[in-house]
Amino acid sequence: MSSELLPYTVKPHPVTGVYSGKLGVWLFLASEVMLFGAFFSAYILLKVGAPLEGPAHWPLHSERHMSWMIGGFNTLVLIISSVTMVMAWVSLKSGNFGKARMLLGATVALAVLFLVIKITMEYIPHWRDGLTTNTSNFWGIYYTMTGLHGVHILGGIVVISYFIGPGSKLWHENPEYYTNRIECTGLYWHFVDLVWIFLFPTLYLMS
């Protein structure tokens, strides 16, 4: 029914060449690039403008209490989650709904693992050490950028879980429409993972 109300949910629009959902997701991702781009710019400006000494100085790599091992492992988790996400879409394209559902479940599990590691092994120990948003500009932008990214991960978990659960009935009504929705979700998920791939070296490796 919904595909009758919304035009070009399955077939490509004659003007854009893509179905409407994909165009909408790319427009949304363009706005997300501007959002995260602004924070990366703020990070660079704060770092360049920070004093060399004193309480407001930019912390050296050794002063940040951040483990490259935890950050690296989380990067690996997100890379694998992108693979499971795209494989779910490939499975749907070949008509294998059961496998796709399992791969979407794996994506959600990996996303939850990422958040659990981030909170329990990084945020909580940092807070216990007194490293909060008020500590310095570095910690302020660190919590802002990783927190915003974490909210996006959470959003991805909600959307993918919906398509595993109540949203999956669309597969039985209109498989192509459902497959396209998973593709749109996959585009979003890849973007979120790509943001982390830039955050990891910026926050964990660069001194």
Binding site: V86, H190, D193
Partner: peptide, 15 residues
Amino acid sequence: LKAFHIVFVIISTLL
């Protein structure tokens, strides 16, 4: 998603 995944794999490899 196919094209975006290829871009993602290339950037991950570089990382």
